[in-house]
């Protein structure tokens, strides 16, 4: 897919060069604007537009897993005819922040985040009780990638 044509050079630089290192200063957008040789208002307006269009999920902090709570990756093997119903049930928990359908016997994959391990376990138990399905509980043992951003390849 050729998505590159939708975004001009300034958009691309905002998306590519500022996935980390966003300034911790009183006027951070003015600092970005200076580096990009444009105006503060232009930077803010473009980021608002990119966010509105969905190209940017947010401009903000990415927090390390387990720094402020506990989480786990869980999976359910859901019979096809119950998938929509159970996907909705799982997405309904405010502790579930990601929920993906994947092509596998374990076809529903979701992340549960809560204040501690007991609270995470309570959500999994509740899902098991309500669905009659036993979730796979796959908590992180060690991360090998610091999630410092992702180089976009424009065409």
């Amino acid at each position: 897919m050729d998505c590159g044509s939708t975004y001009d050079t300034l958009d691309r630089r905002l998306l590519d060069e500022f996935q980390r290192g966003f300034p911790l200063t009183e006027r951070p957008f003015a600092d970005l604007a200076e580096r990009l040789q444009t105006g503060e208002g232009e930077v803010i307006e473009r980021l608002r537009r990119l966010k509105e269009e969905g190209a940017v999920s947010r401009v903000g902090a990415v927090v390390a897993p387990h720094a402020l709570g506990r989480s786990t990756l869980a999976a359910l093997a859901v019979p096809a005819e119950r998938l929509d119903e159970i996907a909705e049930l799982v997405s309904g928990y405010h502790e579930v922040n990601h929920n993906y359908e994947r092509e596998h016997r374990f076809n529903l994959w979701f992340v549960v985040t809560a204040e501690d391990e007991d609270a995470v376990a309570a959500v999994l138990d509740d899902i098991a009780r309500r669905t009659g399905l036993e979730p796979l509980d796959l908590p992180l043992l060690e991360p090998f990638h610091l999630d410092l951003g992702f180089a976009l390849q424009w065409r």
Binding site: Q19, L24, A61, V62, A64, A67
Partner: peptide
């Protein structure tokens, strides 16, 4: 605790 501060692109959308 904070790994990075910046624009978080929506890869799917891009």
């Amino acid at each position: 605790v904070i790994r990075r501060i910046g624009a978080v692109p929506n890869h799917y959308r891009l």
